[in-house]
Amino acid sequence: MKKNQSNKWLAAMKIFTFFWMIFVIIGSLYLTPEAAGFKSTSRVIFYHVPMSWVASLAFLLAAISGILYLRTKKLVYDIWAISSVEIGFLFSILATITGSLWAKVEWGAFWNWDPRETSIVVLLMIYAAYFALRSALESREQKAQISAVYSILAFITVPFLIFVVPRILFTLHPQNPVFTTQTGSIMSPKIKLIFFSSIFGFTLFYYWLLRLRVDLEKIKNNLLAKKRQDNF
């Protein structure tokens, strides 16, 4: 009964997100002016920044789920963790691609080891290692527990990377474009509206994907458990 109710909410949210994203796409292409200092390429922020935001959110949620798993040993937290990491990984790749396309136009090359590019490569390496680690562990409990430990260890090195990487390389990446006031804010109110709508839309989209992925993982686990029962 309760499950039905939440499924209805999810279905309603899906339709709402669909129309919201249509509004964001139209808004980003037709309703907003170009940001000062950049040409039409500035429109990438309506996609690139929300993607990075979703990736950070997903990895944060995965680390929190890892801690919760170690505290409670409830398998559901591991399901949240792996689902969230998978979606975060997808969005990191999307953010890398959109960023790299933008870099080709603005900086003249797809890739030049800017600090932001370096840190996202390290991030992708960490979570690729996470998948490799999970596939090399045998039992379900081992997968859950040891990968939780790794994701926590990886997560605590992130602040060090943020401090260390910009020291060796000089960045050209636009800093904090939302709140910049030096050049009289490069973001007009209209841009801000669409930008935050896009972040909101992408967050809903992430939540919807996450719920689907979590349900899928639960079904998979139930089937595996059932199969094991039948074999005995």
């Binding site: 090195t157 990377l161 260390v164």
Partner: peptide, 10 residues
């Protein structure tokens, strides 16, 4: 090496 490198990078 795969697991250690990203964490060891700093």
């Amino acid at each position: 090496a795969v697991l250690s490198f990203p964490v060891m990078l700093p």
